[in-house]
Computed example of a mutant assay.
Amino acid sequence: MILTVTPNPALDVTYTVPHFRPHTSHRVTGIAAQAGGKGVNVARVLTALGRPARCVLPLGGPTGEAVRTELAAAGLDHAAVPVAGDTRRTVAVVDTADATMFNEPGPALAPAEWDALLAETERHLPQAAVLVLSGSLPPGAPADGYAQLVTLGRGFDVPVVLDADGPALLAALPARPTAVKPNAAELTAATGLPDPHDAARTLLRRGAESVLASLGPDGLLAVDAHGAWRCAPPAAVTGNPTGAGDSAVAALAAGLSGNAGWSAILPDAVALSAATVLHPRAGHFDDDAYHRLRHSLTAARLGAASPSGW
């Protein structure tokens, strides 16, 4: 089972419009609402792939109840930590070319509520093959919140994948996450370096054991102590990029659970990410496109590698 922790979940609302333009009115042609947050998206993708996954997340208020109801309706295994504040919402406005996001900050967690989230995570770790930590930290969470969760996972000898940015990412690196997954902009923001390979090496020196960097239409770059690997789709994919990074994390976690190397993980992650862009909602993917791309992609090794690929 792959365990995902989403400290700042949301009810994701998606509006579909023919063409989005700021400063004007729009006629919405489609509305969807589902449980969201990056870790929930990861678990949703894994479940669709037939891989057992369980979500741990704090939920509160009427919006939290709506999230809980949708998780159950979707058949997503979850363990909710009750909190006093109302769970946040996000709104994605999607047209044929891209998506525009509006993200609420989320409710503040009291210290006891954060401790309860840690305790709930620890309760499920003995059954976990991989621990995935995803998304923003909510108001009230400690600055080293992800470091605490990484340490918890590593204490159970469970590989830990961290998908966070900014201070939350930097504070977690000394705890030595197995893999971190920033995008190109997050890499530059964390290191001040414009080159993704140089920036990834900096994160390794600061404590990450490996880095999987999202480079948008240029695919993915993986860097660890043994070398670097690249994989990209054959052509740019247009649609809703929301959730593409979460699908890459799902592929990474699935690969880690099976001790796969980058040569297997990268094509799977690129194919799954691209197939997610083709679907209007995060946490879902175009199954035909995924399988077609998966069989056409290979990873290019850019540096010396260990026999295992790691």
Score class of each variant (00 low, 15 high):
F156Q: 14
T238A: 15
V150R: 14
P167E: 13
L187H: 09
G192M: 04
V180W: 05
A171N: 13
C231Y: 09
L152C: 13
A147D: 07
A175F: 04
A168T: 01
P182W: 14
A228S: 15
G192D: 08
A175Y: 00
G239I: 07
V150D: 11
W229L: 03
D165L: 05
A190P: 06
R176F: 05
H226A: 15
A208C: 09
S214C: 06
H197N: 11
L221E: 09
Q148V: 03
W229G: 03
K181H: 01
G216C: 05
A236Q: 14
R230Q: 10
G153Q: 00
A244P: 02
P182V: 11
P234H: 09
T178H: 05
D163N: 12
H226L: 02
Y146H: 05
L212R: 06
R230C: 09
D218L: 11
E186V: 14
L220F: 13
A179T: 05
D224M: 06
G145S: 13
D198K: 03
T202L: 13
G155Q: 14
H226V: 00
P177C: 08
A184V: 14
H197A: 15
N240G: 04
R176I: 01
L173Q: 08
G227P: 06
G207A: 08
L149H: 10
E209W: 11
D157M: 07
L170V: 10
L169Q: 02
T242V: 15
T202H: 12
V237F: 06
L169F: 01
L162N: 01
P174M: 05
D195N: 12
A164T: 11
L170H: 06
A232P: 01
S210F: 12
D195M: 08
R176T: 02
A189V: 10
G166I: 07
A190R: 06
V150C: 11
S210C: 11
H226W: 14
A168L: 08
V211K: 00
V211R: 00
A250R: 11
A171Y: 02
G153S: 10
V249Q: 12
A250Q: 14
A244T: 15
P233W: 12
G207L: 03
G155D: 05
T242N: 10
S210L: 13
A250D: 02
T191H: 09
R206W: 02
P174Q: 09
G216E: 04
R205T: 15
V180G: 02
Q148W: 03
A250H: 03
A251H: 07
V160S: 06
S210E: 09
A236S: 13
L187F: 04
G207S: 14
A184N: 04
E209S: 08
D165K: 15
L193Q: 15
A244C: 15
A172W: 11
A213L: 11
A251C: 15
D157V: 05
A235W: 11
F156C: 12
R201S: 13
D144M: 02
L204T: 00
A189C: 03
A189E: 09
A250S: 11
T202I: 06
G145T: 04
R205F: 07
P217W: 12
